[in-house]
């Protein structure tokens, strides 16, 4: 972080390019304090974060049963398994134009884009988690009488948890990216200003420092949620199973 700042400042001093293309860190800082004074700073962040987390939760609620069905029911897997993994490689920004046409410029369009981006990764994470459950656990479960739904609940889901969590982590990354794409492309006054709109506003206002601020915040929020929520969760699960080497 400090290194980035130093390099940045040196580049500015060296006048590598015009200052409107590369604003000084201090200019970006001024932008922060300005937004802070107007009380809009936290509002920008909160608009995006609340959308992102709510969208992610919806993706979780849809993606989990979907993943279980694909993993456990043969014909469901044959029918939608390939679509699901195909969707995962489609950049979710591609969903923004159709979502705008279908739903208009509103919050539901944002959520639709998040869902289309995150549901496939959550479901696929669960599917690969289930596929990697050692057969020994399934057989041990069967001899204990855990078959059918009881087998799914007591054996398959806990055994697949590490893969599922990896899917959730990726699902969050996809949610966040999709949301930013949606906010940048589809800005409208009644949508409230999130970080994506902030970036777009910076571009239209030709304010490079605002653009930089927006990019930094998008990066920081994405990483912070991962560090605060998903990484500790994953570490806890792995440690409790003795799968994490602690020094």
């Amino acid at each position: 972080m400090a290194l980035v700042l130093v390099v940045w400042q040196v580049l500015v001093w060296a006048k590598v390019t015009d200052s409107y293309k590369l604003p000084a860190p201090s200019a970006v800082w001024d932008e922060v304090s300005e937004a802070w004074r107007q009380g809009t700073f936290l509002e920008y962040i909160w608009t995006s974060v609340s959308r992102g987390l709510l969208g992610f939760l919806m993706a979780l609620v849809i993606g989990t049963p979907l993943g279980l069905l694909v993993a456990r029911v043969k014909f469901v897997r044959a029918a939608i398994g390939p679509i699901l993994s195909g969707l995962q490689s489609l950049p979710s920004v591609a969903w923004v134009p159709p979502a705008v046409l279908w739903l208009g410029l509103n919050d539901s369009m944002m959520y639709a884009v998040i869902l289309l981006g995150a549901v496939p990764s959550i479901a696929n994470g669960l599917v690969s988690g289930v596929d990697q459950v050692p057969p020994l656990y399934l057989r041990a479960g069967r001899t204990l009488g855990a078959t059918g739904l009881r087998g799914t609940w007591h054996i398959v889901i806990p055994a697949a948890l590490p893969g599922y969590l990896a899917g959730l982590k990726q699902g969050w990354a996809f949610s966040w990216r999709s949301l930013m794409a949606a906010e940048i492309i589809a800005s409208s006054p009644d949508l409230g200003i999130g970080l994506g709109q902030l970036l777009e506003n910076g571009r239209t206002a030709n304010s490079m420092s605002m653009v930089f601020l927006a990019i930094l915040l998008i990066l920081i929020v994405g990483i912070a949620i991962d560090l605060l929520i998903f990484s500790p969760l994953e570490r806890r699960v792995l440690r409790s199973r003795g799968l994490l080497v602690t020094h």
Partner: peptide, 24 residues
């Protein structure tokens, strides 16, 4: 059936492994 490998579930404690069998 007791397998050649212990086949205990790593997401449960020793006691909970036994309790799962009791529950089932």
């Amino acid at each position: 059936l007791m397998f050649q490998e212990h086949a205990l579930f790593p997401w449960l404690t020793a006691g909970k492994n036994i309790e799962l069998a009791l529950k089932l």
